[in-house]
Design a protein around this nucleic acid. Sequence first.
RNA 1: GGACCGGUAGCUCAGCUGGAUAGAGCAGCUGCCUUCUAAGCAGCAGGUCAUUGGUUCGAAUCCAAUCCGGUUCACCA
Length: 633
Amino acid sequence: MGIVAAIQSAVHIEIKALYQTDFPASSVLVNETKPEFEGDYTVVLFALVKPLKKSPEALGQELGARLVQQHPQLFTAFNVIKGFLNLTVAEAYWLQFLDENAGKANYGYHSGNTHKVMVEYSSPNTNKPLHLGHLRNNFLGWSIAEIAKANGNEVVKTCIVNDRGVHICKSMLAWQRFANGATPESTGIKGDHFVGEYYVKFENLLKEQSAPILEKILTGDLTDVESGDQPKAQAILNKLATLSGDKKKEAEDELKEIARNSSEAMKAVRQMLLKWEQGDAETIALWKQMNSWVYAGFDATYKRIGSDFDKTYYESNTYLLGKDLVEQGLAKGVFYAKEDGSVWIDLTADGLDEKIVRRKDGTSVYITQDIGLAVQRSEEYKSDQSIYVVGDEQNYHFKVLKLIAQKLGLASADGIYHLSYGMVELPSGKMKSREGTVVDADDLVDEMIKIAAAKTEELGKVKDFSPAELADLYDILGIGALKFFLLRVDPKKKMLFDPNESIEFQGFTGPFIQYTHARINSILKKIEYSESYTFSEEVNNNVELFPKEKEIIVLAEQFPSIINQAGIEHNPSVIASYVFRLAQTFNSFLAEHNILHAESMDQKLLRMKLAVITARIIKNGMKLLGIRVPERM
RNA sequence: GGACCGGUAGCUCAGCUGGAUAGAGCAGCUGCCUUCUAAGCAGCAGGUCAUUGGUUCGAAUCCAAUCCGGUUCACCA
């Protein structure tokens, strides 16, 4: 039991004893005492004042006295200021805590939760390389999975690869037309980038072809427009003159889209997709070939950034799923069919809209496939929670997904959790692939490692490192900085990626924390501390703690509950903030006190334990973020 | 138009189950390396917590309205 829970429990017991009133322990509000007051933890009394019919001052005095009297092993002093009961926790408690935990390799990690959690993340498209947005997704997904494990859960990491569809055919078509048989091998270009180039080539072709069509449409001439789109185009044209501002822009974009769809290139792409669906040998062969190039590229990137999966699903295998669910839904009356044969669900009662679940041609739409996959996976793994790490532009999609699953009565429905994260934006605005403003993942990682190398060399502390050690260090620092930068903010919120700030190695950054670890490690080495060292039987309750020493212990004691909190909130930034605060506190302590040349043997031993537990928390905490820490730097 | 998310220091972000004088980092300014790594430490300065109203002992936090920004509401995925 952590100290906060212990305080809550003690308050619960003593209030019952004093006033025969039962407050659930968990309802007792316990905060860290602000530095300007005397004490470690504070019980906020206001909520208790009214039911107990006591003044805050009287209640504080009575309760404080009683707590100190009844729990001398926990509390040694108290004071009451306004409605706040500040408690000083016994030094012996802190020392014992330190003694019991400093040697634990897995300090902070929980065990024994029986939940089976599935985390789906990454979900790349196989038509272009990974970019900055994917990095946030990958880092988040990986970290969430680790945090779930650290909370004692069994975790399965999955990935659904979007390996089929119009966008893939675009790259394929461009390759057929422009590549002259070129391959990643023949050009020396990484596979995913190679394929991405053809995607861009296709987009350029499309731009060329659709521009004149759009011009013609705007003159009112719809002869180039696909017959199916003509009524829609006409309707937009009719109201175009009456529109202005955003509405006008929207209408123009729709026309642009129609023009694009009417181009020869798009017709060819749709033809190709049709052939793919029919299993045309040549098309399938090209598709396999190009995807294999992309996978080789992805694998290399995943390896560098430390992403991995227990199970990878491919949309080409799953896109037909969900059909029988439609039948089930119809039978249950959850869905209804329209005259044209399409199948829908009416979610207006839930504040949403009507949603199609099967097209009139009988094929299933994205959301139906997703439900089908959800069912398949939950049957395969029997997980009780599925966390989907997907951008917040799909909030609506997942709301609908969960609702449909619930209405169908699927066992896995309630376990669906959409970990929605905000977009990564640049100082120049949003990343747009069509405008070429995306930050490429590989380039970014290269850049970070390069900067890590430059900064390290500049400091000149690594003269005795071997080339291999150096390369590893630069990796640890560069990727660590990047991961920390992307994970330190609340996932829910959109974030700004300022390149200048991301390469900063000072302050609230990965390298700052890594540096603290290296420093501690260097001290421990000088003390000749080793992992096999055991602290038992060395408890010394006569040591008086300095404020900085106590601060570290108080923080260290919070680590398990921080992990718990991060798990409940699905939020790695909780860990990032905490580890930073701990590192900061330790550095401050180091500036004030000496470990090697401590005032006494007892003091030295105590500080050694502080160093050990701090280093361990940094290491274990950073591991939950997917960040390695160096032994020296 | 409906739904959802956000607006906190010059910048990037914490804090949001209501609690003490709203916190970090960066940038700016002062100090501190013959003493365990200065990728560090100590300090100064910087705020109408978007606005208005409400709820109450107490509101950055809850409610309502307004303003601003974003996302979404496809027989796309």
